[in-house]
């Protein structure tokens, strides 16, 4: 029932502004607004999106108290000015501990069907507990986490107001997920171009777009309004350490070294690249694909030598840079 209301509200919000719905489930239509060409935000029926939950989730997202030694928040590894990714190859966790993967961008994360580079989390709510508990990230015991949040009376009252009950694993993850569902971006020059502003892209960027869809074959995986098909692919990079990618989740050898196809929106701002941040620049990434990967075991058949000219590489990168939405980089807070 609530989903139906939300979807209808989302559809209406594309054309209307300022229409509110009264009551406990009051929604600010702005939190359901989506860019032109985007699908309605998937919101689970058990966790309807409300301004109060979003506000609480935002507070939690930036709260250092959510880490063991109170040194890290979610935002410590998801920087707003880096499209909610991390410009470091690996993000230091508590006590400087390093994991094995680059922190992915959270932009448009509401649309992802499975979370993490390997799809190990089923929902945005469940995903929140991964970094909170991981000993190389925030290293919080869940009981201690709830006790810490409960010790702040202002949190308790905010939880009561937003969710009708106090802090718990369930309510905390619902609030964090709600905030993250509002991190949306679709205001790039490319978006203006496809909306009819033909001058929004330069000649080089338009040539890059043609390459992206054609010779360079990027769009085989990076397609749709998110520029990802949400599949898991082995893109032909040599393994580092023992990370087996999607196979770690499925235990299926056919999934060896497969990782999520990431969205390319704001890709200019989300360096370094690949699941382990091994490439510092888009030039490195293009060179990797141009040579057809490394031929590692289980490499996707889609990765073949491209034989791009230097000009074509420049055009392709120019197009990728046109996917930047400057508004997401500052003051996103809904």
């Amino acid at each position: 029932m609530r989903v139906g209301i939300l979807i209808a509200a989302a559809a209406l919000s594309l054309g209307l502004a300022g229409c509110g719905i009264a009551g406990h489930e009051t929604r600010d239509p702005a939190i359901l607004d989506v860019p032109v060409g985007f699908e309605p935000i998937p919101v689970p029926a058990h966790n309807p999106l409300t301004p109060a939950k979003v506000e609480l989730g935002e507070r939690l997202f930036f709260d250092l108290d959510l880490s063991e030694d109170r040194s890290l928040s979610c935002a410590s590894c998801h920087f707003e000015n880096a499209a909610f990714a991390d410009p470091r190859r690996l993000s230091p966790g508590v006590h400087g501990r390093l994991g094995i993967r680059n922190s992915p961008s959270l932009v448009n994360v509401a649309y992802l069907n499975l979370l993490f580079w390997d799809g190990g989390a089923l929902t945005l709510e469940a995903q929140a507990l991964g970094p909170l508990e991981a000993d190389f990230e925030m290293n919080m015991n869940l009981g201690d986490l709830i006790t810490r949040v409960e010790s702040d009376p202002s949190y308790v009252s905010q939880f009561e107001e937003a969710l009708g009950e106090g802090p718990s694993i369930r309510t905390l993850t619902q609030a964090l997920a709600s905030f993250q569902r509002t991190i949306r971006s679709g205001g790039s020059r490319y978006d203006r171009y496809v909306s009819g502003a033909v001058d929004a892209l330069t000649d080089s960027e338009r040539r890059g777009l043609e390459l992206f869809r054609g010779k360079a074959n990027c769009a085989s995986c990076h397609n749709g309004f998110l520029f990802t098909n949400q599949a898991f692919e082995n893109n032909g990079i040599e393994p580092a350490g023992s990370d087996s990618g999607r196979a770690r989740i499925t235990l299926d050898p056919a999934d060896f070294l497969e990782f999520r196809v990431p969205s390319l929106r704001n890709v200019e701002k989300t360096a370094p690249y690949m699941h382990d941040g091994r490439f510092d620049s888009l030039e490195d990434v293009i060179d990797h694909y141009d040579q057809g990967g490394t031929g590692v075991r289980n490499q996707s058949a889609l990765i073949t030598p491209l034989r791009l000219t230097d000009q074509e590489k420049r055009d392709l990168i120019a197009f990728l840079n046109s996917l930047t939405d400057e508004t997401i980089l500052t003051g996103l807070t809904p």
């Binding site: 993490f116 390997d118 190990g120 989390a121 089923l122 469940a126 995903q127 507990l129 991964g130 909170l132 508990e133 991981a134 015991n141 869940l142 009981g143 709830i146 718990s168 694993i169 369930r170 770690r248 989740i249």
Partner: peptide, 19 residues
Amino acid sequence: ASHPLAKQTDKNNHWNWAN
């Protein structure tokens, strides 16, 4: 929280990273 399949707040018996 009262259900045995809930996230255990003392020691977890559910993988966050591999549902």
